[in-house]
């Protein structure tokens, strides 16, 4: 049983990862793999869309921390979008809003990438 899914959608030079379900220590490697794949393809403009993400634990948050510096060094970024209040609360408790840009919806995150292009 795995209550988690990552779907990738490329939009120009921005890649969108849609997360669905439960992101915990069991499922975090799937997310890690998806990010690793993007980095190895040098696709470093990434939007992580969380409208269907029901749950996140620190194992999931740790994945963001594991990649962000490398991605920013390559002039990319991970922008976060569409998270539920419940998921936002966890990000907020750990101080993530000061490190990551969080947008209400995917298109706003995409627009931010496009304006800096």
């Amino acid at each position: 049983m795995s209550g988690f899914e990552v779907r990738r959608h490329d939009n120009g030079d921005v890649s969108i990862l849609h997360l669905k379900g439960f992101l915990d220590a069991h499922t975090a490697p799937q997310f890690e793999h998806a990010l690793q794949e993007l980095v190895s393809e040098n696709r470093v403009k990434i939007v992580v869309s969380m409208s269907d993400l029901d749950y996140i634990s620190s194992a999931g948050l740790g994945v963001f921390m594991g990649f962000i510096e490398e991605i920013r060094e390559k002039d990319g970024d991970i922008k976060l979008s569409s998270m539920s209040e419940k998921v936002f609360k966890v990000f907020d408790l750990l101080g993530f809003p000061s490190l990551y840009e969080i947008f209400d919806d995917e298109s706003a995150a995409l627009a931010k990438f496009n304006e800096t292009n």
Partner: peptide, 19 residues
């Protein structure tokens, strides 16, 4: 955890205890 330091060291653990 010092998130800034975490970011530089690409660390993933230790956040759970704080949570």
């Amino acid at each position: 955890p010092d998130l800034d330091k975490y970011m530089h060291e690409a660390r993933k653990g230790g956040l759970g205890i704080h949570l």
